[in-house]
Computed example of a mutant assay.
Amino acid sequence: MTAPFPGARAAGDGTHSATADADRTDAEHADANYHLVGAPLDATTTFQPGTRFGPDRVRRFAGTFDDYDRRTDSSFSEAAVLDGGNVRAWNDVPAYLDHLTAELRAAVIDEAVPLTIGGEHTVTRAGVRATEPDVLVVLDAHLDLRDEYDGNPLSHACVVRRCLDGLGGSDHPTVDEVVVVGARTGSREEWERSESEDVTVVPPENAGEWSDHVPDLDGRDVYLSVDIDGADPGFAPGTGTMEPFGLHPREMRDVVRGVAPHCVGFDVVEVNDRDDGQAASLAGKLLLEFVFEHAASGRD
């Protein structure tokens, strides 16, 4: 049995297991401002797998955090977050993304903001499909702009490209613009794609300045995705593809705070079980920061 994210209410009959429509009630969803689900997809991870453990691990290590936030004078438990448990993953990635999209779209229909804990970064595609934002902002060490990786266009290394360009002739929603904050590595093809007008890359050394002066996003719906490997691996070693010279936690926090008021959806992804909880702790804290800032902005 999965315990809910600390401060959130468990959905359904209290078993808090894989999502099942039969366990839902209209009342509990109607009064929720945020719907949280775990998406433990671990199908295309490279180098160090283990993202299947990410959702429960983030929930566990978030248990040490205080409910009250002095800066916003608010409590997480009063933000009306409903934790629907984990959407059980399987290795048919297209089918899983369809299923996850439907779960997240149900939150949108209920006029709640979907929050997703991954799982590999591929799950962001479901969040974008469900919320149909104008802009995708990503905190990430990697560009994730490959058209395919090892022959797979739905690899976690391709997720930003899929959100921009779609897949083949599919009619799934795509974004108009992507901002990748913290990127410091990519293939030649990816760097060439990043030179297009619809992509902005903010290197780690410029992240602080960018968050201090977030470009005008008023009137534009934003989806924010935090790949935990955007952090320097000294702060978050529990991830699949560590990349040195990365972001500090406070820089990631400031980006989350700056973007959150414009967001229609959020996820934090790529946490695995290969450290002592540093990555999961940072992921959970950034999710808290998102909710505190988003709720304070009145967007919900």
Rank of each mutant, 00 (worst) to 15 (best):
residue 5 F to Q: 00
residue 9 R to M: 11
residue 13 D to P: 11
residue 26 D to K: 08
residue 35 H to K: 02
residue 35 H to R: 10
residue 37 V to N: 09
residue 42 D to L: 05
residue 44 T to S: 14
residue 52 R to L: 11
residue 52 R to H: 10
residue 53 F to H: 13
residue 54 G to A: 12
residue 55 P to S: 14
residue 56 D to C: 08
residue 59 R to Y: 08
residue 61 F to H: 14
residue 61 F to D: 04
residue 65 F to H: 12
residue 68 Y to F: 15
residue 72 T to N: 08
residue 72 T to S: 12
residue 82 L to I: 09
residue 84 G to R: 09
residue 90 W to M: 07
residue 90 W to P: 00
residue 94 P to T: 07
residue 101 T to H: 05
residue 104 L to V: 05
residue 105 R to W: 02
residue 107 A to C: 07
residue 108 V to Y: 01
residue 110 D to E: 13
residue 117 I to V: 15
residue 122 T to C: 12
residue 128 V to E: 04
residue 133 P to S: 06
residue 137 V to L: 12
residue 144 D to M: 08
residue 148 E to L: 09
residue 152 N to C: 12
residue 156 H to T: 03
residue 164 L to V: 12
residue 164 L to Y: 08
residue 171 D to L: 10
residue 173 P to W: 05
residue 176 D to K: 15
residue 181 V to M: 10
residue 188 R to V: 14
residue 194 S to C: 12
residue 212 D to Y: 00
residue 214 V to I: 15
residue 215 P to R: 10
residue 216 D to F: 03
residue 217 L to F: 11
residue 232 D to A: 08
residue 238 G to N: 05
residue 243 E to I: 10
residue 244 P to S: 04
residue 247 L to H: 06
residue 248 H to K: 14
residue 253 R to L: 14
residue 256 V to P: 05
residue 259 V to A: 08
residue 264 V to A: 07
residue 265 G to R: 04
residue 265 G to Q: 02
residue 266 F to D: 02
residue 273 D to T: 06
residue 278 Q to R: 07
residue 280 A to C: 09
